[in-house]
Design a protein around this nucleic acid. Sequence first.
DNA 1: TGTAGTATCTTTTTT
DNA 2: AGATACTACA
Length: 740
Amino acid sequence: MNKIISEIETNETNPILRNLNIEQRKAVLAVEGPVLIVAGAGSGKTRVLTHKIAYLIDIGIPPQNILALTFTNKAAQVMRERISLLVNPEASKRIWAGTFHSIFAKILRFEANAIGYSSNFSIYDTDDSVNIIKRILEGYSISNNRLTAETIHHIISLAKNKVLSPEEFARTSSTPIDRQVADIYKEYQDYLHQNNAMDFDDLLVNTYELFRSYPEILHKYQERFTFILVDEYQDTNKVQYLVLKQLSSKYRNITVVGDDAQSIYRWRGADIRNILDFQKDFPDSKIFRLEQNYRSTKCILSAADSVIKFNKKQIEKKLWTENEDGELIEVFQCENEKEEANLVVKTIKSLVDGGKFSFGDIAIFYRTNAQSLEFENALRRENINYVVVGGLSFYKRKEVKDVLAYLKLLVNPNDNEALIRIINEPPRGIGKITLAHLMNYAKERKISIFEALGNIDEISNLQNRAIGVLKDFRNWLLRTVDKLNEKVGIADTIYQYIKESGLISMYEEIGTDDAYDRLENINTLLTDIYDFLTRNENTDLYDYLQQISLISDIDEKNIATEQVKLMTLHSAKGLEFPVVFIVGLEQGLFPLIRYKSKSNEDEEEERRLFYVGITRAMKKVYLTYALVRHRFGDESYQVPSKFLQEIDNKYLLVHTESRRKTITFVDRPKNAFDYKDDFNDFDQTEDNTLKIGDKVLHPFFGIGRVEHLEGSGNFAQALVNFDSVGRKRLMLQYAKLKKV
DNA sequence: TGTAGTATCTTTTTT
DNA sequence: AGATACTACA
């Protein structure tokens, strides 16, 4: 193969290699061996990956031997589409491209028996997992503290991502809390297995375990995936890393692409060391740096760079661009979140009226999903089309989850979660008590609830009425499963089944607007299933359920029409827009700070997130913050984000709005946030040396106690718990606090 | 068992 | 403020 490659290296007439810069081309041509591509924002990362895959196919690598792992299904789909423009579309279809989770789920489905699952295993989402943990927690009397099911789930998830089994986790746990979590983890894991179910993390861990325990199976997949390419490598976690190592250890043809400056999933177990240590793992690896940015203006790029410089740990690289200088980044101060939304929408309108941009060119990024509401309201008032990417997804709605639970039960009747969810939805007279008896019986015998229904006459303490209902339910389910197995008219069977479930007539009887919305959603779902089954041959309900359980919010929405896009900064990764608004730039919100853990690492991750946000923009960036924001129903005085100070002022145009609502335009101030003048009518706090625990007096709120202090100088703020109104976040600069 | 009324908590970010 | 979880009652 070496001979072929050296021949082709000199052959620059290959159309796949045209339109690539030198570094990009080198990265594409480095076909064999481990390759690390350090690709800055907007440097053509996707382009290199797609061209590399196309090139591999072009030089005769069978497409089915190529594995491309991405972060979202959407990214995989985009990649496939682009490849199909470069090579035979039929060939591009045979590539294995998808997320870690979806590809591994596919593998596990084939090999499930080896690790003690059957191939119809259910995939539990986060909600399911948390519900299970809640139920387990009921058996532990010590659930009164701050240790919520969500927290425990998170701890377990992190453990799994580090490939710690419950036993290993127990061994490494030093605190009493960890030991308790270890017990719960064990119980949780046993429960999942009993249900023939895996959570998201299991898809990764079980793949690792499968390959570790069965060398011959690993060997099979090593032979299948002789060329492996990984996108967003900086966001892989330890299990993912380990499986990549397993798969690539034979042929060693692995190309990873990433940018350490865009690593934003540390909280979910992503380990930035994976990219930093790639060279250690593969000493013979080749490294390519893509440093030319094709996306943004010079101004945007420099501004982003000036911020990310505040992070200590970084791979050395400097991005540059031949693009125009572009306009300054504009910063707006707003009175509160309503005004922030109005101002953003007003600006959007004038941008579009100006004729240079359309609504579809514009995106609004926020730190938390909850912030979308005000912007939605403001946009709706102005009749501007918009789409919220993410948020409460269709598949998370109650009625949709109910229908899906009914369907999951057909595929895997041992899926307790599904059964518990719908056994009394619509109400059948199976209440808590009856269910508890069932669950007890099942638990004692280590069988599923559905199996318990088969022995229903043996279960004591059940009411006759309940027994009748449960028998009917079981028979009905079995009948439907039989019908489904006939493999004809699957879609009809499903429709009939859901109709018989009584869900539809329940909502019809309720008859409120809300109920009709829900009916509409059920209808949409059933139509979607029908489409899926008729569109794809040889697929069944199982395939549909697997597909949607791994679908992400970003994947569902077709981001192409003339709508303003609203999304979290996390969802924004990998996308680009001509105009970007980043809103809510306030201390505590962005960077988001929670009371206890605000390590330096956390702040650096927030800063990378800000960097990701800015670098999504092609032409123009707007940044906004509010002075007052409602949090948990009451007012909180906000401090401008420290990130605003970190951006080099050369690149900023700051609009400061005074209390009298006259707008002052300030061009390139020495320090944009040194503007105390607006607030001079307020007395400065006299004694600035507040300490945690100090008792203070506020003119409106009265007596309170200082619970938390942060920031300094003009940005100093305190969290004070007042006797009258509870906790308030105050800027010391404005709040007239007196120590008492 | 189901429901109405009350208490409590929420705001990260996602496969 | 709004959703969800829990409690007391029919």
